[in-house]
Amino acid sequence: MRKLLYITFVFYGILAALPVSAQCDSTSSMCQDHLGTQYISDGQSYKALLIGDEVAEFNTTFFGGSKYRIAGCSGNSDGNLKWSMYDVKGNLLYTNNDYRNTPYWDFEFVSSIDITIEAQLSSLSEGSGCAVLMIGFKR
């Protein structure tokens, strides 16, 4: 009986993981399109499997005088990922939730500042999914 439970666990685990892995590729491609060609990729790739209300967080520095585009995607359509940007004091600087979870937004930084971005699945998305975040910059 114990063995049967393990087999069931593994089987459903694989069923859950494989489509998400494939989904990550298509989500990345969609996100890349939102980044467009005007913005140069920072050369890094940020992906996460999010379940329920889990939050993924990343920290970075944005340089003053630079323009950035941040694209955040999940699943195969827009609006599945909500993400918010905070400064070092926890002030909310931007949330795409105010703009129908728009998949991308452009930023101009007057000064170089350290930022935290938090991303989570929106209520529109299914219970779990691959979240992809991309950052591009231009002069």
């Binding site: 593994v10 993981a17 998400v20 990550c24 996460a48 499997l49 209300d53 889990e54 939050v55 993924a56």
Partner: peptide, 18 residues
């Protein structure tokens, strides 16, 4: 419940399952 996760955690979990 609010849980923080790691972007790279996905690959670790997928790797373990596979």
């Amino acid at each position: 419940m609010r849980i923080r996760t790691d972007f790279r955690l996905f690959s670790s979990i997928s790797f373990c399952v596979l």
